[in-house]
Design a protein around this nucleic acid. Structure first.
Lengths: 168, 168
DNA sequence: CTTGAAAGTTTGTCTAC
DNA sequence: GTAGACAAACTTTCAAG
């Protein structure tokens, strides 16, 4: 019973580098539903959006191909993986370091690293890490950051609690 | 002084509040596969783990009930949602503020807020936000943080790039 | 805790609007 | 772009090992 208003297709040039065109109302409903529950059956998804299942299928595929949907992932409790301690580490590289890319690649391979934020300001990176405990955290900083001559300094801050409000 | 009652050899109490027991090899395979692709069909999952589909189903259900798997979510490109600018905001609350919980709840409802990190150290929070642009970022800080008398100060840092290595 | 088989759903292709 | 119908694939229950 909800009539889906088909919006005209404008293209906002400010919009993005890669992600073409903006989402219409149906796309937004699909995206929101999949954000809440990535395993929702295509059937149910179609009903929520008020379209036929085959249409929903095509829409979701298109959203994936356009890069709007980057993937579907299970959210795992860090404790279950023996990663109950999270921390945020500020990293400053040497002023002359041209190797930001190399550093990023190396860091990205470590599985303690959950997020890499390349930031503005006095520091260059913010690394969100998850480790087994304080011991493992110290080892991580010493081995992977302290030992790197390109790293000018680090500052580690414990995370007491981490919430991701988008997920309820 | 009374001797500290030595509890039977249980798990490290820091280990977890809720997540019972650790994962066996099969569970680990399932978890890893679902982390990579939450929409993998159950029978493909079963094959990867070397178990029957019905077993895989039961295992995954159990992992969900144990809280190991917290959910399945689509990863959406922020640009597609008109949230192309990300920032990290340090927030310090007034020293006497007993209202951390109220602040957290209020902040968690804002949909610019992607992550809330409750941290150790001079600051109390790190807010990871995603907004449409610099304008929206300023508005966010002024309206939702600056206007709150419990907030003693904020510091906003732009995020040039954000990588989540776990997802490939 | 595991499984295979069977019944019921869902997915995805295709054709036509 | 969209929807309906069909065949293939998938999910899920259950009795039994």
């Amino acid at each position: 019973m909800p009539a889906i208003s088909s919006s005209p297709r404008h293209r906002d040039p400010r919009q993005s580098n890669e992600i073409r065109a903006s989402l219409d109302d149906v796309d937004r409903v699909l995206v929101e539903a999949l954000q809440r529950d990535a395993r929702i059956p295509n059937n149910a998804l179609a009903e929520i959006a008020g379209i036929a299942p085959s249409t929903a299928l095509g829409r979701v595929r298109a959203l994936r191909e356009r890069g709007v949907i980057r993937g579907f992932h299970a959210d795992i409790a860090p404790e279950a993986l023996g990663r109950g301690l999270e921390a945020m580490i500020s990293v400053r590289l040497q002023a002359h370091a041209r190797k930001h890319e190399a550093f990023t690649k190396r860091i990205a391979r470590l599985d303690e690293v959950v997020d890499i934020y390349f930031i503005a300001g006095a520091n260059d990176y913010l690394l969100h890490v998850a480790v087994a405990g304080a011991h493992a955290l110290r080892d991580f900083v010493i081995e992977h950051l302290g030992a790197d001559p390109e790293v000018a300094g680090t500052e580690t801050t414990l995370i007491f609690e981490h919430l991701r409000p988008g997920r309820d």
